[in-house]
Nucleic acid binder design. Sequence first.
RNA 1: GCCGAGGUGGCGGAAUUGGUAGACGCGCUGGCUUCAGGUGCCAGUGAGGGAAACCUCGUGAAGGUUCAAGUCCUUUCCUCGGCACCA
Length: 821
Amino acid sequence: MGHVRNYTIGDVIARHQRMLGKNVLQPMGWDAFGLPAENAAMAKGVAPAAWTWDNIAYMRRQLRALGFGIDWDRELATCQPEYYRWNQWLFLKLLDKGLVYQKTGTVNWDPLDQTVLANEQVIDGRGWRTGAVVEKREIPMYYMRITAYADELLEALDTLGDWPERVRLMQANWIGRSEGVEIAFPYADSARAAAGSDGVLKVFTTRADTLLGATYCAVAAEHPLATAAARDNPQLAAFIGECKSGSVMEADIATAEKRGMPTGLHVIHPLSGAELEVWVANYVLMGYGEGAVMAVPAHDERDFEFAGKYGLPIRCVIRSTTGAYTDTTAPWQPAYAEHGITVNSSAFDGLDFQQAVDAIATAVEKKGLGKKRVQFRLRDWGISRQRYWGTPIPIIHCTACGDVPVPDEQLPVVLPEDCVPDGSGNPLNKRADFVVCSCPKCGQPARRETDTMDTFVDSSWYFLRFACADSATAMVDERVRYWLPVDQYIGGIEHAILHLLYSRFWTRAMRDLGLLQLDEPFARLLTQGMVLNGIYFRKTGAGRITYFNPTEVEARTDAAGQPLHVLIADGEPVQTSGIGTMSKSRNNGVDPQALVDTLGADTARLFTMFTAPPEQSLEWSDEGVQGASRFLKRVWKAVYTHAAGGPAGQVDAAALNEAQCALRRQVHQTLAKVSDDIGRRRTFNTAIAAVMELLNSVVRAETATPTDRAVIQEALELSLLMLSPIVPHICHRLWQVLGHSGAIIDESWPQPDPAALQAATVEIVVQVNGKLRGRVTVATDASEADVRAAALADENVQRFVADKPVRKAIVVAGKLVNVVV
RNA sequence: GCCGAGGUGGCGGAAUUGGUAGACGCGCUGGCUUCAGGUGCCAGUGAGGGAAACCUCGUGAAGGUUCAAGUCCUUUCCUCGGCACCA
């Protein structure tokens, strides 16, 4: 249903824009690689390729049935060699430019299945199939240097005025630019001995003003100094080993209990010369900054908690400017972390935040032990996956020549389509016909890389390919200039960061290779809300969960009268975790096909557009679907009832009575609102509600005279035009019932008649001291004094004013009067 | 834990710029139609009080700003999305 919602929103906008005279392209592509296909393959024992193509055929039929105006000539699937060859081609171009490089990365390792797990396959720290406790493991991977674009990606967010504010905020926070100081703590004798040489421990801090409050340093478990210290320290080695159990997920790491162990090694404070002990701490991330931090327990909450737990010294070096605290004693108070004036910092006392940072940065720089720099939270994008169903990474490993790029003329490296994964690792490794090859450089036997690319690669540029989907000789061509950027991109809010950020990066990387003249891929963005449904499951063993579709589940009450959900098949209860996103992994999707088959495509379209505004989540409701169907029947009946009276004439605006005038005013007001709701606000639910109200008025209107019928004819024609982007099928038919020989799809979007919008009088709300006490009707052009007098003359208003003097009366033109007594 | 969004009748939601809270739809209640059920049509429907006019209360909770607060500010609780290998 998420797809139905997504494409219905797009189709409504596309049809509306087309009626406004635009040349509209609505393409379709299949994001076909990835884990779901492998999972289905494992469950059903079929090859991911076959499963994928079956799904595509099914979905294509469904999208056609829903009547989306898609240009099928441009259809693509990311699992086609004609598409993914360009992933490979660009990968090699970026490798050449230094924007792709190799380094080690940390993955989830299932020790029983001997395989890498996706985060989704780790449940409560255990492998989903084996139940084994997951370990972190370092393996070589290819990375895209997205951090080279960090500044650009951040700054350009300001140019994306038609993106939702929340998405820009989330991206800005994700990129996380922070200005601070890199500080080096030289090794003391102990550290020098362990490391076997002189050296420094580098840290990055945004709080250089607190440097004199540093009482220890903490490093990540993977930090070289931790490794060195563990060599002669079995206890520490064991602790580092413990830190390696558990998943690589940041949410897991951040919520884990903060633990640490001293290394016994020391480093020297760059300003005070004091020896600080180095600790290994599980809250320090190797992937951020230098993998080491200076700990200032007095002014950092995590350090404070850690120091308290392990009895480390706390040294207060900031005086509060607000007097919130005088000493940083337990318990922790948020004010401890606020900027203030330096104290206990010898030569650096009495400075405010910026002065202290500047002075301390200068001091460490003079000693050659640091400098100001900018740090980003954003990390480079690891694209290697130890999985089968993805784009093969076009590299050949040669014992003599090393890692050799596959030459252009050998692209694409075609993925065999007949592998069936069994959960024990990448099946490509067992395919000699894929792995065994010859080195392009020296011709000797060599081994082909079996890692595939992250599927985010596929989705980072598909929108460009739609402009030139038939191009066999180039990734993109000059037609991209005509169609791009995408005028209206629609995607789930779950893509707010990763997909959208990768696409923005990829577009800029292609631009810098001279392939595009485009900075940003998506001019306007609509982030649709999720489609929700009930979630039902049973736990079937350690970490294993079986999910049941809501259609397989029935709500009952148990003996004690408590609500209970049971599986229809066996009558036994199932657990529920409430309502959640429709997803394959939770098996709570609704198949739109059944809905299309029984109540029609227009009902499906109307339900998804009416039930909630597009940016909010949408809860599936069988009753809501019935309501949508009922409205369409009402429209149908209204049009046929009217048409049964024979042809109706044109509206003669001068000949209208009061009721006819009022109905015609409502028609044109509705048109103005619907135009704004669809065109600017994108609140299709309120547009539909307005047409429903109009139809309610039309059904009640007098039908006696030819003038009555002319007004109704206009009302119905405009209603159909307004509804046609949303429910095109029924509108197509009814348009002809109203006497038109052409198709409604070829009509232009109508304009409201300004004369019809004019009203002689307006209703004014009257408040006394802010409480509603009456309503008065005044002439539209009445003066403020007249409005005020009319308000005060109202009987109920008089009751509340009584003999109290009117202190003032606030008049909001055309809306209300507030009398203050 | 961190980042972002949200919380309004029995339910989905409306209130667009600080100006009538609850549009529209669902559900429910009563009536008409029907042998009956359904469909369809008509009326009612935030809570409390009142014969009625109308009054009081009411937008997760607690404070505040304002002539006026669902909307702005502070604190707080809960739900959802994301957290880099679901896509």
